[in-house]
Every structure is written in C-alpha cells, then in structure tokens.
C-alpha cells in the first residue's frame, strides 16, 4: 500500500508507491508478462493462449482499494503491434473498453478521477514494450482536471468547446479532422508536436458518446499516431492522456472529452527536457512554433493514410 503526502508549497499530492521500484523492467520478448500464456510456456499475466483485449489490476499499483485503483489495459496479444497498427475494429473495441472501465471505476466511492493513459517509448519511461495502456483511478481530483475546471470558469463556459471553435476558425494548426473529431496542435502547445484530439460536440465523457462518435475517435487517434510514426519515419514516443469529467460528487461535473498527446521529441533525434524554467518556474520554453509543427504533422498524417 502506498502513502499519499500533501506538498504544501505547491498544494499538490505526492504518491509514494515504493514497491514499484521492483517492477519488471524492459524484459525480453520471451519473458514479456503481457503476452498470452503459450502452452508449455512461461506463465504471464494473462493465463490464456490468445485474447483480444485484457484488463487487469496492476501488480505494482500506484493506487489501490480503498484509495483508488491502477489497471493495465493490454491492446492485443501481438507483442510487436502498436496503437497505430491495431486493426480498426480493435481500436474501436478499445474505446468501448475505456468507456466500460471509466464507468465502473468512476462509480466507486473512493474514486474521484479516472485517468486513462498510454506511455509509449523508453523516452517517456516505458518498462514493457508490449502494446498497452494504463488506468489510474485517483482518490482525489488531480491538478490538471482542476485547472480545466478553472479554465471553464475563466472562459465562462466549456473551455475545450471555446478552444475548438478558435482552432477551427484559425485552421493553421489543424492536423486531421473527421465528422465528429478535430485534431490540432494547440495555440499554446507546451511540446513541439503536442496534439489534442477533441470531440466536436460537447461530450463530458466516453459515456456520453454515440457509437459513431466512438468510432470516429478511434479513427482520429489512429490517424494521428500513424502520422507521428511517419513524421520522422521511426516509432514516435508519446504520453497519451484521455481527459474526461471528474467522477467526484462535487457540484461541478463539467468536462469535455478529449485526448492529449505529449511527445518529448522536438526533432528526430533531440528530446525536450523539463529543466530550470519548466521545473523551477513552471514555464515551458519551446524551440518550435505550433503552426510550423502542425504543417509538418499534417503532411505526415496525410502521408500515413
């Protein structure tokens, strides 16, 4: 069981999950714990010879009942796939899995925020290469959704709705769009190739989406991640985070479903580091302009279609 401590200077929680120090670190393919268990082979986390999508409670949880939860979502039993290379049907199925886990975890009394995310690439600290994401169910509302609520109050309504309109009017930072979803590099992106994948209609969570919207979301996410891989013609590292309404019992349950990507690369071979200004002052310094990055990424998304 971890320990939560409150850091007064920044006004934020820090989670001490020291058992995670012992977690499996970059195993070879034959020792991958997320592969299916082959007949006569080493037992893995999934004791079946094949599967489509598997979800299980993390063996090394950052949060666990009765103070939240930590789950692993395995996208496929194929070790060398990625989100981008999943069959379209599997990507659509994944949206429904995310929806089901948000609903079940969010209904728990000890869960106030459900964060679905994926870390891809050793550059962002991945310890298992098998295609998978994670879910953290926090026993409090974290700083990012709290800031999003504050943005709603500042803009006098749904902030993602307002920002979406602004990006549509401007158009220079749009990298992909379909009937229900817009993908753009935001006006004030922190990362060179940061992208926001936003439902056009106001949908607080995956639970509010029609099945056609979930299909469109899967399509947009795959178009973007394929574009990322095409950008520098190499597997593109990123952190992907699904933003939805908090599940606390507060008076304000507003939110607007969108998925944010934070890729650490600023060129094919150079990483953006969080250094003095970012860590000491909380101010991102960017070496690139969102409009120029969007042009390159839009071209890569088109090339990867």
């Amino acid at each position: 069981m971890g320990e939560l401590r409150f850091e007064e200077l920044r006004g934020e929680w820090v989670d001490y999950a020291i058992h995670r120090q012992e977690r499996t670190f970059l195993p070879s393919e034959e020792h991958c714990p997320l592969c299916p268990t082959r007949p006569g082979g080493e037992p893995t986390e999934i004791p079946f010879p094949t599967f489509e999508i598997a979800v299980f409670e993390n063996r090394f949880p950052a949060f666990e009942s009765p103070r939240g939860a930590a789950e692993v979502v395995v996208y496929t039993d194929r070790h060398h796939d990625s989100f981008a290379t999943l069959a379209p049907e599997r990507a659509r199925a994944l949206m429904w899995v995310w929806r089901a886990r948000y609903e079940e975890l969010g209904a728990r009394e000890d869960v106030e925020y459900v964060l679905i995310f994926e870390n891809r690439g050793v550059e962002v600290g991945v310890t298992l290469h098998h295609p998978h994401g994670q879910i953290y169910a926090y026993p409090f509302v974290p700083p990012v959704p709290t800031a999003e609520r504050a943005a709603d109050a500042r803009l006098g309504g749904c902030a993602p709705c307002a920002l979406l309109r602004r990006e549509l009017e401007d158009g220079r930072r749009v990298v992909y769009e379909n009937e229900h979803v817009l993908v753009y590099i935001p006006h004030a992106a922190r990362w060179s190739y940061e992208a926001h994948v936003v439902l056009r209609a106001h949908r607080p969570t995956l639970l509010h989406c029609a099945s056609t919207e979930l299909d469109a979301l899967a399509e947009a996410l795959q178009a973007l991640t394929r574009g990322y891989d095409a950008l520098f013609e190499q597997p593109f590292p990123y952190v992907m985070a699904v933003h939805q309404a908090p599940t606390d019992t507060g008076p304000e349950r507003a939110g607007h479903l969108h998925v944010e990507f934070y890729p650490p690369l600023r060129t094919a071979h150079k990483l953006k580091y969080l250094a003095g200004s970012e860590q000491g002052g909380g101010v991102f310094i960017s070496d690139t302009l969102p409009e120029e990055s969007a042009e390159a990424l839009r071209e890569a998304v088109g090339r990867a279609e």
Partner: peptide, 30 residues
C-alpha cells in the same frame, strides 16, 4: 456472459486475488 455495448466480457480472479477481464468484440450493440 456479461456484455458492454458491442463487447462481451469475462471476469476472472488471478491466484493473488487481482481482477482480470477479457474483452471480445462482437460487433453488435448488446
């Protein structure tokens, strides 16, 4: 078998008590 939209799912408990859920796409909204 449990359903969630177009998914069929089965729940298991691992030997150490952890939850495991396997999802299968049916393509039909249940």
């Amino acid at each position: 078998m449990e359903r969630s939209g177009p998914l069929a799912l089965e729940r298991y408990r691992k030997a150490d008590g952890r939850l495991l859920i396997l999802y299968r796409w049916t393509g039909e909204d249940g």
